[in-house]
Amino acid sequence: MKLQDFLLGVATGIATAYVIKEVSEKVNPYKNANAVLENIKNAFKIQGPIDGSWIFMEPQLFHKENIEIPVYKGGISRVEEGETVNLEFAADAKTGSIVDLVRV
């Protein structure tokens, strides 16, 4: 096999992967819910260990004031000063950023 043929194959593969990525982002502009949860868990683990976590896999509309955005809703539980504390969050489905956090 010639080097030129090999490089052409590599370039074609890279171009195809790029096109598939762009098309899939247009079809589903939301981040993967599991990836969002992992990022949130990692942020909470900086402050200490967590006991459990959960997330709804389908985005839901979040309303606050005059803002409406698609979010993933979920929760984190941890032990603080000997007591279990549950926190519920709403994370922007497009960026993964937490837009609301409530202690339950």
Rank of each mutant, 00 (worst) to 15 (best):
K2T: 14
L3E: 04
Q4I: 02
F6Y: 00
L7K: 13
L8K: 12
V10A: 14
I14E: 00
Y18P: 01
Y18H: 04
K21Q: 13
E22A: 12
V27S: 14
Y30T: 11
Y30H: 11
N32T: 11
N32W: 07
N34F: 04
A35I: 03
E38W: 01
E38I: 08
N39V: 02
N39I: 00
N39Q: 11
N39K: 01
N39P: 00
K41L: 06
A43Y: 02
A43C: 05
K45C: 03
I46M: 03
Q47H: 13
P49A: 11
I50L: 12
D51H: 04
G52V: 07
W54C: 08
W54R: 05
W54T: 11
F56K: 06
M57Y: 09
P59E: 13
Q60H: 03
E65D: 15
P70M: 02
P70N: 12
V71W: 02
Y72K: 03
K73D: 08
G75E: 09
E81S: 14
E81T: 09
E81W: 00
E83I: 06
E83P: 00
T84I: 12
E88D: 15
E88V: 09
E88F: 08
E88R: 04
F89N: 07
A90I: 04
A91E: 03
A91Y: 04
A91G: 13
K94T: 10
T95V: 06
T95N: 06
S97L: 09
V99L: 09
V99W: 02
D100T: 11
D100F: 09
V102T: 15
